[in-house]
Design a protein around this nucleic acid. Structure first.
Lengths: 105, 105
DNA sequence: TGACTATATCAAAATATATTGATATAGTCT
DNA sequence: AGACTATATCAATATATTTTGATATAGTCA
C-alpha cells in the first residue's frame, strides 16, 4: 500500500492550517460575507443589512474572518470597511489543492 | 452599493450545499482520509492503521464522507474499499468557485 | 455637552460535532 | 459449527460553535 501524504508528522502543520481555513469558511454567514465582499469593500452596516443579520452577529463573524486574515479592515469615521485579503486566500487555496488534488472541471 | 450574490433566496440552495461540503472537509481526520485516498482506493483497516485512528472513529468519518457522496465503497469479502468520487468533488469544487472567486495563483 | 450612529465585546443559552467504549453484524476459514 | 477478522452502529460523554441580549466604545454633529 503506497500512500503519499498525511502520515503523522508529515505535512502536519499545513494540513492543520488547511482544516482551520475550511472551518472558517464552512459557516453559512461567513461564506455569504466572503461572497458579498467579492465585489469590493463594504462597511459593516451594508453587510448586516444586506444579509439580514443582527449587527452583533455580523461583527462576530467578521472578527473570525479578520482574525484568520481572510479579510482586512479600514476605519473611516464611524464606519469600518472590510475587504478580502486575496493573498491569504491564494495561500490557503494552494494548501487546499495540495491535500485534495485539483478536482476542477 | 452593488452586491452580486447571496441575497436571501438568491443561490440559496447552492450556497447551503457548498457550506455543507466545506463542513464535511473541515475536519482533520476527514481531510486526511480524502488525502489518503488520492492515490487510490483503500480498505478501512489500511486507513485507520495508517492514520492511527480508532477503528470505529474511522468508520464514523467514512460514513460521513460516504453519506455526502464524496467517496464510494465496494465490498470484497470482509473488507470494504473506499475511493474518491471525483464527479462529486468536481461539482462541489465549481460551487465553491462560484461563491469565492478563484483565488488560484 | 448631549443625542445619535456604527461597531465591538461579553456572558449565557442553544446547538452541533467529535470521540469513546461497548456491542452487533457479516464474511472467512478450519 | 466455532473461532476469528473487518466493519458498522449506538448511546454516552466531551468539546466546540453559533446565536442572543445586554452593554460598552468611539466617532459625528447640532
Amino acid at each position: 500500500m503506497k500512500i503519499s501524504c498525511c502520515r503523522k508528522n508529515e505535512s502536519t502543520k499545513e494540513l492543520a492550517m488547511t482544516v482551520d481555513f475550511l472551518k472558517v469558511l464552512a459557516e453559512e454567514n461567513r461564506l455569504k460575507i466572503m461572497c458579498t465582499l467579492r465585489s469590493g469593500e463594504k462597511c459593516v452596516c451594508d453587510i448586516w443589512r444586506f444579509l439580514d443579520l443582527p449587527q452583533n452577529l455580523a461583527s462576530h463573524h467578521l472578527k473570525i474572518l479578520k482574525d484568520f486574515k481572510l479579510i482586512d479592515s479600514r476605519k473611516d469615521g464611524l464606519k469600518v470597511y472590510y475587504s478580502i485579503n486575496s493573498n491569504e486566500m491564494s495561500k490557503y487555496n494552494s494548501f487546499l489543492n495540495h491535500f485534495l488534488k485539483s478536482y476542477e472541471q
